[in-house]
Design a protein around this nucleic acid. Sequence first.
RNA 1: GCCGCGAUGGUGGAAUCGGUAGACACGAAGGACUUAAAAUCCUUUGGCUAUUGUAGCUGUGCGGGUUCAAGUCCCGCUCGCGGUACCA
Length: 938
Amino acid sequence: MEYNFKEIEKKWQQYWKDNAIYSVENGGDKPKFYVLDMFPYPSGAGLHVGHPLGYIASDIYSRYKRLQGFNVLHPMGFDAYGLPAEQYAIQTGQHPAVTTEKNIARYCEQLNKIGFCYDWNREVRTCDADYYKWTQWAFQKMFSHWYSCEVNAARPISELIEIFSKQGNAEVQAAQSETPTFTAEEWNSWDDKRQQEMLMNYRIAYLADTKVNWCPKLGCVLANDEVSEGLSVRGGYPVEQRVMRQWSLRVSAYAQRLLEGLDTIDWTDSLKETQKNWIGRSEGTEVQFKVKDSDMEFTIFTTRADTIFGVTFMVLAPESELVAKLTKPECAEAVEAYLERTKKRTERERISDRSVTGVFSGSYAINPFTGEEVPIWISDYVLAGYGTGAIMAVPAHDSRDYAFAKQFNLPIIPLIEGCDVSNESYDAKDGIVCNSPKAGVEPYCDLMLNGLTVKEAIAATKKYVESHNLGRVKVNYRLRDAVFSRQRYWGEPFPVYYKDGMPYMIPENCLPLELPKVDKFLPTESGEPPLGHAKLWAWNEAEATLADVAEIDNKNIFPLELCTMPGFAGSSAYFLRYMDNKNGDALVGKTANEYWKNVDLYIGGTEHATGHLIYSRFWNKFLFDLGVICKDEPFQKLINQGMIQGRSNFVYRVVGTNKFVSLNLKDEYETQQIHVDVNLVANDVLDIERFRNWMPEYKDAEFILENGKYVCGWAVEKMSKSMFNVVNPDDIVERYGADTLRFYEMFLGPLEQSKPWDTNGIDGVHRFLRRLWAMYENVSEEQPSAEELKTLHKTIKKITFDIEHFSFNTSVSAFMICQNELSQLKCNKRAILEPLAVLIAPFAPHIAEELWHRLGNDTTVCDATFPICNEEYLIESSVKYPISFNGKVRFTLEMPADMSKEDVEKTALANEQTQKYLDGKSPRKVIVVPGKIVNIVL
RNA sequence: GCCGCGAUGGUGGAAUCGGUAGACACGAAGGACUUAAAAUCCUUUGGCUAUUGUAGCUGUGCGGGUUCAAGUCCCGCUCGCGGUACCA
């Protein structure tokens, strides 16, 4: 009988669906296991062959765990809010909800063809009101909480109000925006608005004037991870800096916990490293500098406190508040001009133009360690948003300060013995300190760093600064708060209305606040976000209902927030919702959460390393602080699957003709390389007829062939429509079947490695499945031979090891070897074939199911038990030892497998051939590696 | 610039703890079956040298080192990929 994969796959996919084979319960006797894929954004283009790579891997693991007796949660859903659907709506007028729905249907259809074991009852879509209810709910909780640095957790804002009314804010240790100190009396004397303004500095979700990445073309702000090199990641439009009043999330409050949490989870070192760099913890010192002829002081941050004796100037960020205060009248004009110039420069220009610019403020600071006066400059190489927005410049030991000093002819004082700073700065943190203080100069203070190593000098300076009240030891983080407002339509609405300019939350029991209908998706004429078009978009406070915008009176009826939430809002807690997606009373019920806990295995791409994977860890930790969930890290183990790149094919047209020349003859002509659709090419050989019909201009094309074939060139490029290298999984399923696709995607190479999709070679995998199929004809009930058992158990051992180590590509080889060996033995015995079917089920579930039933089983193969390797079958009766003399001469000797190491040595030495090589001499050394090799050193 | 990862036949890749490098697959060449083709099966396939079987040399980006033994460990480079960037 033929291997009719179409029929088999259709039959079993229908059966699994009809009998709800993959639906999972919360609870039961079995241990739990949670396997998660990063849910996709359903784009209009549908899935290409790269998308399922990670899904196939997680599906194999899920099925494996299930066969091992675990209760496996393996859900799928859709990250449905996003810019492309909105852009499409703007262009075509089609409502994003409609196109999104359509795209999801297409995705589901494509996914289901591949035979994944998802429990679709648990599907979530971020754009469903009963899902985003909980996104809004979490936002409200962030609004009503502050972060206490004392207990290192989020606390209700009511606690903070109580503290303020009793003792003011002087003693409060909180993650906060810059806030003036106030007393309890002051607090109590303020009206509600003033108090609310003050609380805004503490809330975890807060409104603030923020410098944001504004993309005029998209009419929207973008998060840092949505911008790359001054261009938007989606669309590639220019992005500029702008100050806007925006919602932000105080992610920075969690910086230390996000860093420490990395030690408790099983992620790759490279990903942990990326996150560590993104969080950017840096231990340093804040030092106060007095201003000459003034009672003003300002603070700088440095990680190199040891270099303070080498300070020759100070630099302020152009946006720093200090600029206005420290600019002397005689310099005002130049400073003004400089500020104007920097303001105009976009982020992109700043990146591309690295020339050194700056302007002198006219003021001098006094170095607290030397008493020297140093000029204060203003330059855009200092950032307002990091540290204090002001630095002490040590040109000898910082390359940026060095470039600045050279440009403006400022002095450079080397502080490390023997370092040469005539051409470049010496940035390395090693060496012995000198010139601190300078020899022969009357010491200004009693700190002596000369002779210490850099490390010792940093520690000594820190100690000195603290004990002399010159500043304090400080830890800074690069991680910024996340801007949370987007001026667009297709996202979660904020459950917020504005009264007297201050935000108020709509009551929790009124959630979800549903996204209103609009008829236009562009900003309004007055420049408001698209929600400004909505008619029913105001809040009646007294009745707690929506009201018409026309009725806004700011007494009972108030305007609602017009921005929506960014993409990461919906994806930050979706893994919790899968546990309990029908729950109307909570994001996730206590029982469900305590049962599933967190994700045991998460598979997805590295592109989310500094976006989704930071935000969702933050979000999760916040919910943990509230006591809503029981684990503070969401993803215990994480695997990054590599990207599947495209493999493009080329034809070579002879210039000025409609003639095409085959790859290896093209050097004889002057040719032009043209992309050709990879679907017209098999094993790099062009299907000439289909090529002629591909585009009208090629209808009369002529070909110069080699060996009767037209051979195409190829290159690895991004998979995209314009390169004609997109391969659709549906086409592969149609031609070879889902099981072949699954096997082949795994066979392509290591899961975590990026690799091009190359359809050459898929035949080999397909052939293997056909051979496997053929083995199950005429199954006999005979007892298996020792050799057959050995092959089976060897394979069990290998496959188990491979799955545990996510080495799926070598599993495929192991199956091929197993099949090959069994067919050499002409094995058709049930005792071998039945466990083999179970073993292969995670990889190729359809064929396994069919074979399993053909063997007479009436349960599904998913309910079988994963076979266990019996090592006894693997024991060899004899082992071949290669005997090698100093690694040069080699021959092989067979010995009993259970022979001891000593006996192996003896036998090897007593051997006739060994004696010949030893030639009467005794060996210097004999090394026996059990079961592998005997090395004889002459 | 900094951080991380990688480099093995014509191709994708294997070698899991330092132990016979090139498993498995593709491609290619030859053969069997067939009127023929497709499909299937068999043989060969890192390079070089000679050869009837066979043998010898060489070989994992480059240069050194440790070791009886190195693709694997150490030092110094080259190239490629990914992330990040005036973070003081």
